Amino acid sequence: NQASVVANQLIPIQTALTLVMMRSEVVTPVGIPAEDIPRLVSMQVNRAVPLGTTLMPDMVKGYA
Score class of each variant (00 low, 15 high):
residue 6 V to Y: 03
residue 61 K to T: 14
residue 3 A to I: 06
residue 51 L to P: 10
residue 6 V to I: 13
residue 16 A to R: 11
residue 26 V to S: 09
residue 25 E to F: 07
residue 61 K to R: 14
residue 16 A to W: 12
residue 52 G to K: 02
residue 58 D to V: 08
residue 30 V to F: 14
residue 45 V to T: 13
residue 10 L to N: 15
residue 2 Q to W: 14
residue 4 S to K: 00
residue 1 N to L: 15
residue 32 I to M: 02
residue 28 T to Q: 10
residue 19 L to M: 14
residue 23 R to C: 05
residue 10 L to D: 13
residue 32 I to L: 04
residue 42 S to Y: 09
residue 42 S to Q: 13
residue 51 L to N: 15
residue 3 A to K: 10
residue 31 G to I: 03
residue 9 Q to R: 14
residue 30 V to G: 09
residue 54 T to H: 02
residue 7 A to Y: 03
residue 48 A to H: 14
residue 15 T to A: 10
residue 28 T to C: 11
residue 50 P to G: 10
residue 46 N to G: 08
residue 8 N to C: 09
residue 43 M to F: 09
residue 19 L to F: 12
residue 10 L to I: 10
residue 29 P to S: 04
residue 10 L to Q: 11
residue 37 I to F: 03
residue 26 V to E: 15
residue 51 L to W: 13
residue 44 Q to F: 15
residue 25 E to S: 11
residue 26 V to T: 10
residue 18 T to A: 08
residue 5 V to N: 02
residue 60 V to L: 09
residue 58 D to F: 14
residue 50 P to K: 09
residue 31 G to W: 03
residue 11 I to L: 07
residue 33 P to N: 09
residue 25 E to G: 11
residue 19 L to D: 05
residue 12 P to E: 09
residue 22 M to R: 01
residue 21 M to C: 04
residue 11 I to S: 01
residue 7 A to P: 00
residue 11 I to Y: 00
residue 20 V to P: 11
residue 56 M to Y: 08
residue 23 R to H: 05
residue 43 M to C: 08
residue 7 A to G: 01
residue 11 I to E: 01
residue 28 T to I: 09
residue 11 I to R: 01
residue 42 S to W: 08
residue 39 R to N: 10
residue 19 L to Q: 07
residue 17 L to P: 02
residue 19 L to A: 09
residue 24 S to Y: 10
residue 35 E to C: 12
residue 10 L to K: 13
residue 56 M to G: 04
residue 4 S to D: 01
residue 32 I to C: 05
residue 43 M to Y: 11
residue 63 Y to G: 02
residue 25 E to N: 10
residue 25 E to P: 00
residue 37 I to T: 06
residue 55 L to Q: 00
residue 7 A to D: 01
residue 1 N to M: 15
residue 41 V to Q: 06
residue 29 P to F: 04
residue 17 L to C: 04
residue 37 I to D: 01
residue 47 R to I: 10
residue 51 L to E: 13
residue 8 N to F: 04
residue 54 T to Q: 03
residue 40 L to E: 01
residue 27 V to D: 02
residue 40 L to D: 00
residue 63 Y to R: 02
residue 19 L to T: 07
residue 4 S to N: 00
residue 4 S to T: 03
residue 3 A to R: 07
residue 10 L to F: 15
residue 43 M to E: 04
residue 52 G to P: 02
residue 16 A to Y: 13
residue 20 V to F: 15
residue 27 V to S: 05
residue 24 S to P: 12
residue 7 A to T: 09
residue 31 G to A: 03
residue 55 L to I: 14
residue 3 A to C: 12
residue 23 R to Q: 04
residue 53 T to I: 08
residue 50 P to H: 09
residue 9 Q to S: 10
residue 22 M to Y: 03
residue 54 T to M: 04
residue 64 A to Y: 06
residue 28 T to G: 06
residue 8 N to V: 08
residue 8 N to M: 07
residue 61 K to A: 13
residue 21 M to D: 03
residue 27 V to P: 01
residue 1 N to D: 15
residue 43 M to L: 11
residue 5 V to W: 03
residue 26 V to D: 10
residue 50 P to Y: 13
residue 26 V to W: 11
residue 18 T to M: 07
residue 34 A to R: 05
residue 37 I to Q: 04
residue 21 M to T: 00
residue 17 L to E: 02
residue 52 G to A: 06
residue 12 P to W: 04
residue 42 S to I: 04
residue 57 P to E: 07
residue 23 R to T: 06
residue 41 V to I: 13
residue 28 T to V: 09
residue 40 L to S: 00
residue 47 R to G: 05
residue 26 V to I: 14
residue 64 A to S: 14
residue 14 Q to R: 11
residue 48 A to C: 12
residue 25 E to M: 10
residue 48 A to S: 12
residue 24 S to H: 08
residue 37 I to P: 02
residue 7 A to L: 03
residue 37 I to R: 06
residue 58 D to Y: 15
residue 40 L to N: 00
residue 55 L to H: 01
residue 16 A to S: 14
residue 19 L to H: 14
residue 8 N to K: 08
residue 19 L to W: 11
residue 51 L to R: 11
residue 63 Y to W: 13
residue 18 T to K: 08
residue 63 Y to K: 02
residue 30 V to A: 09
residue 24 S to W: 07
residue 12 P to I: 04
residue 46 N to D: 08
residue 40 L to C: 03
residue 19 L to K: 06
residue 12 P to H: 08
residue 48 A to F: 11
residue 3 A to G: 13
residue 60 V to G: 01
residue 9 Q to D: 06
residue 39 R to F: 10
residue 21 M to W: 04
residue 49 V to M: 03
residue 35 E to T: 11
residue 56 M to Q: 13
residue 47 R to A: 09
residue 57 P to S: 11
residue 46 N to R: 10
residue 1 N to Y: 15
residue 31 G to L: 01
residue 38 P to W: 11
residue 24 S to Q: 11
residue 49 V to L: 09
residue 24 S to F: 06
residue 61 K to Y: 14
residue 28 T to K: 07
residue 37 I to V: 06
residue 42 S to D: 10
residue 45 V to Y: 00
residue 36 D to E: 12
residue 43 M to S: 06
residue 59 M to H: 08
residue 18 T to E: 07
residue 58 D to E: 14
residue 1 N to G: 15
residue 39 R to M: 13
residue 42 S to N: 14
residue 58 D to G: 09
residue 47 R to W: 09
residue 28 T to F: 11
residue 43 M to D: 01
residue 64 A to M: 13
residue 22 M to N: 00
residue 43 M to Q: 07
residue 56 M to R: 08
residue 9 Q to M: 14
residue 51 L to K: 12
residue 49 V to P: 02
residue 42 S to P: 00
residue 54 T to V: 09
residue 26 V to P: 07
residue 31 G to N: 01
residue 54 T to F: 03
residue 48 A to M: 15
residue 64 A to F: 07
residue 27 V to C: 07
residue 44 Q to M: 14
residue 9 Q to L: 10
residue 32 I to D: 01
residue 60 V to Q: 00
residue 3 A to N: 07
residue 20 V to C: 12
residue 45 V to G: 00
residue 28 T to H: 09
residue 25 E to L: 08
residue 53 T to K: 08
residue 33 P to T: 08
residue 39 R to P: 01
residue 54 T to P: 06
residue 38 P to Q: 14
residue 48 A to D: 14
residue 45 V to A: 04
residue 41 V to N: 01
residue 64 A to I: 12
residue 52 G to S: 05
residue 1 N to F: 13
residue 21 M to Y: 05
residue 42 S to A: 11
residue 61 K to E: 09
residue 52 G to W: 04
residue 18 T to D: 05
residue 55 L to G: 00
residue 34 A to E: 09
residue 56 M to L: 13
residue 64 A to C: 15
residue 3 A to E: 13
residue 24 S to I: 08
residue 20 V to H: 13
residue 18 T to C: 05
residue 9 Q to T: 13
residue 56 M to C: 07
residue 60 V to N: 01
residue 9 Q to P: 00
residue 59 M to F: 10
residue 22 M to G: 01
residue 30 V to W: 11
residue 63 Y to A: 02
residue 48 A to P: 11
residue 64 A to W: 06
residue 39 R to W: 10
residue 6 V to C: 05
residue 1 N to C: 07
residue 15 T to V: 10
residue 34 A to Q: 06
residue 60 V to R: 02
residue 63 Y to S: 04
residue 39 R to I: 10
residue 8 N to T: 13
residue 47 R to Q: 14
residue 6 V to S: 00
residue 40 L to I: 12
residue 61 K to L: 13
residue 9 Q to G: 04
residue 50 P to F: 08
residue 52 G to Q: 02
residue 16 A to E: 08
residue 3 A to T: 08
residue 2 Q to E: 13
residue 1 N to S: 15
residue 3 A to P: 10
residue 35 E to M: 10
residue 5 V to A: 10
residue 7 A to S: 11
residue 7 A to C: 04
residue 2 Q to M: 12
residue 47 R to V: 12
